[in-house]
Amino acid sequence: MSGEAKRRLRMKIGIIGAGQIGGTLTRRLSELGHDVRVSNSRSPETLADLANDTGATAVWAKDAAADADLVIVSIPQKNVPDLAAGIVDARKPGAPVIETNNYYPQQRDGEIAAIEDGQVESAWVAEQIGAPVYKVFNGIWWKHLLQSGAPSGAPNRIALPVAGEDGPGRDLVHGIVDQLGFEPVDAGPISESWRQQPGTPVYGKDFDADDTRTALAEATAERTSEWTARAS
């Protein structure tokens, strides 16, 4: 079986967070035929409308990752420490974990000292949940994620940077990005994922693959005044 065929097999996907990005991924991945379980910080009953609209199964957050081939964490950064211990541990062995989060210190999250002191946002998330992560979907507007996908090879196809370790997990994540209609771009390891954080040249842009690579290369690690809680 080809790698492409394997990527298009129906997968069990657990999504923790049902906001604009998590809810949109629930909708799109269900449309692609995947078995999606979605959760929020409340009870499954509060997701009845989303479940009815998409065919996804609403579950408690602690159950979202059970036996999953892929887990997606998409919640406000400040709420990550509130997740149950071992929240993603019940996924299948080797199943990748995507985190779509952004640190918005002035706009929503308040100060997270470790990040302000220099820890990369996604490395902080990985530390909190006790599992390595891939960073993707953090810089695209949810409406474009819902509506702007295009087939592989389409001109000016929107590219999405993917940071994380190489190997089968990256292959699976790249395959999901491609299925959703976007061009996956290798953005290096999580230690380099600051290149796609808020305030960087690629963040919030609908660049193609070449322009995405250029923007990642032009990023600087220093936080601008808009994206720090310690602005003077």
Rank of each mutant, 00 (worst) to 15 (best):
R170H: 10
R170T: 00
R170V: 03
D171Y: 01
D171I: 04
V173G: 01
V173P: 00
V173I: 11
V173E: 00
V173D: 03
V173L: 07
I176S: 01
V177R: 04
V177P: 00
V177L: 04
V177S: 01
V177T: 01
D178I: 00
D178N: 10
D178R: 00
Q179F: 06
Q179C: 07
L180V: 05
L180W: 03
L180T: 03
L180A: 09
L180G: 02
G181P: 05
F182A: 04
F182T: 00
F182I: 06
F182Y: 11
E183Q: 14
E183W: 02
E183P: 01
E183A: 13
E183N: 05
E183K: 04
P184C: 09
P184F: 08
P184V: 07
V185M: 10
V185E: 04
D186C: 03
A187E: 06
A187G: 15
G188K: 06
G188M: 10
P189S: 12
P189D: 12
I190S: 11
S191G: 14
S191C: 01
S191I: 04
S191E: 15
S191L: 10
S193F: 06
W194V: 04
W194G: 06
R195L: 11
R195N: 10
R195W: 08
R195C: 10
Q196D: 12
Q196F: 08
Q196E: 12
Q196L: 13
Q196P: 09
Q197W: 13
P198H: 07
P198A: 10
P198F: 13
P198M: 13
P198E: 12
G199N: 06
G199Q: 08
T200V: 11
P201F: 12
P201K: 09
P201W: 10
P201M: 11
V202N: 14
Y203V: 08
Y203E: 10
G204M: 14
G204S: 14
K205V: 15
K205A: 15
K205R: 15
D206V: 05
D206W: 10
F207W: 14
F207E: 13
F207Y: 15
F207N: 14
D208H: 10
D208A: 11
A209I: 08
A209M: 12
A209W: 11
A209Q: 09
D210K: 14
D210P: 00
D210A: 15
D211V: 03
D211I: 04
